[in-house]
């Protein structure tokens, strides 16, 4: 699908989505409540057919925490970038997409481990790299560790 048509289609499904201009891929900021239903349609609708989640990134923008999803369709070869954000730094939570794209299972565990973002209904929400008793989420911008981190 052409990038323009894809953008229209996404805005049609989620009217609240904010389009970000001048990006490598068509990029939308999706309200976290609408995200799961959009993801399900992205996966299952025949003319969208986003069957490959090639990157899932947790990001700390300073005040907001969020996740960036990169999708592509192996049949139509179009790509899409979606973002979800939250200002809740205490207990951020999003819906999992591990049931739609199994590759998200490890990615989401990594995001939970390093950013402390929970994914509801994830099959195995444990830390992946750090120990279970690690305090804090190291990739957050406000994480401090006087002992282990050497400031350059």
């Amino acid at each position: 699908m052409e990038a323009e048509k894809l953008k229209e289609k996404i805005l049609e499904i989620v009217p609240e989505a904010q389009l970000e201009e001048n990006k490598q891929f068509p990029t939308f900021l999706i309200p976290s409540g609408k995200f799961k239903s959009l993801a399900t349609r992205l996966k299952e609708e025949k003319d969208l057919d986003f069957d490959y989640l090639f990157c899932l990134t947790g990001v700390d923008w300073g005040t907001e925490l969020g996740v960036v999803y990169h999708f592509t369709s192996t049949s139509f070869n179009h790509s899409l970038e979606l973002k979800v954000k939250t200002e809740n730094r205490e207990n951020p939570e999003f819906d999992t997409v591990a049931d739609l794209w199994r590759t998200a299972e490890f990615f989401e565990r990594e995001v939970w481990d390093l950013f402390g973002i929970r994914f509801t209904d994830h099959p195995d929400m444990r830390r992946i790299f750090l120990e279970e008793d690690w305090v804090g989420y190291p990739m957050r911008k406000d994480y401090t560790d006087e002992v282990n981190i050497v400031e350059l």
Binding site: D51, Y52, L53, F54, T74, W101, R102, T103
Partner: peptide, 8 residues
């Protein structure tokens, strides 16, 4: 093939 794509 489907599994490969789904699991990335």
């Amino acid at each position: 093939k489907e599994e490969a794509i789904n699991y990335g």
